[in-house]
């Protein structure tokens, strides 16, 4: 049997019940993590509809691939890794479309910020898209406020020092961008 990190935790119990075919237990897991997964996806791709599709696909993949969850990390960490992979797939698959869309969005954002910088409902989420993918992933996980730096590093499969550097450079770049757009 695999060693669940904390076999007595309510989450481990929900995972075990889901494995036995209890759909209600999986629904509880979905409810527990839906906001974090959606926010993570949203910060990765900015587009609300795409983020919801990514979140949905991440949960379904987690259910289908539950036999692969070894219990060495928290369920959330594993789920976030799936979400990030789904977001990467989305961004890769729609690279050309996204690039075109980003150019249009930049033009629109520049016009909008010149007129009224507060019109955009999520201007910083939009600005995140201008960071490198590595920095964006680190920042999106960091701003969930649920994971330690070590867990973020494990989720991204990167050394701790690298993640720290990505976070630092990402935050610095975000501040510069926010200043340029009159958001800070």
């Amino acid at each position: 049997m695999l060693a669940i990190r904390n076999p007595l935790s309510p989450e481990a119990s929900l995972v075990a019940r889901t494995r036995r075919g209890d759909a209600g237990a999986f629904e509880a897991l979905v409810r527990q993590h839906k906001d974090s997964v959606l926010n993570l996806a949203r910060r990765m791709v900015a587009d609300c509809d795409a983020a919801e599709d990514i979140a949905q696909e991440a949960f379904i993949k987690a259910y289908r691939e539950l036999h692969r969850f070894r219990g060495e990390s928290a369920f959330a960490t594993w789920l976030y890794r799936i979400t990030i992979n789904e977001a990467r797939l989305y961004l890769r698959g729609h690279q050309r479309r996204v690039a075109r869309w980003e150019r249009q969005r930049d033009l629109a954002a520049a016009e909008a910020s010149a007129q009224s910088p507060t019109d955009d409902p999520a201007p910083l989420t939009e600005l995140l898209q201008e960071l490198s993918a590595d920095q964006r992933e680190a920042l999106a996980l960091f701003h969930l406020k649920e994971l330690s730096l070590e867990e973020i590093a494990r989720t991204l499969g990167a050394p701790l020092g690298t993640v720290k550097a990505r976070l630092s450079r990402g935050r610095e770049r975000l501040r510069q961008l926010a200043r340029e757009r009159g958001l800070a």
């Binding site: 839906k34 906001d35 997964v37 959606l38 926010n39 949203r42 609300c48 919801e52 979140a55 409902p121 999520a122 201007p123 910083l124 989420t125 701003h143 406020k145």
Partner: peptide, 8 residues
């Protein structure tokens, strides 16, 4: 950024 958090 915290204020831009959405609820699913």
């Amino acid at each position: 950024l915290a204020g831009e958090r959405v609820v699913a």
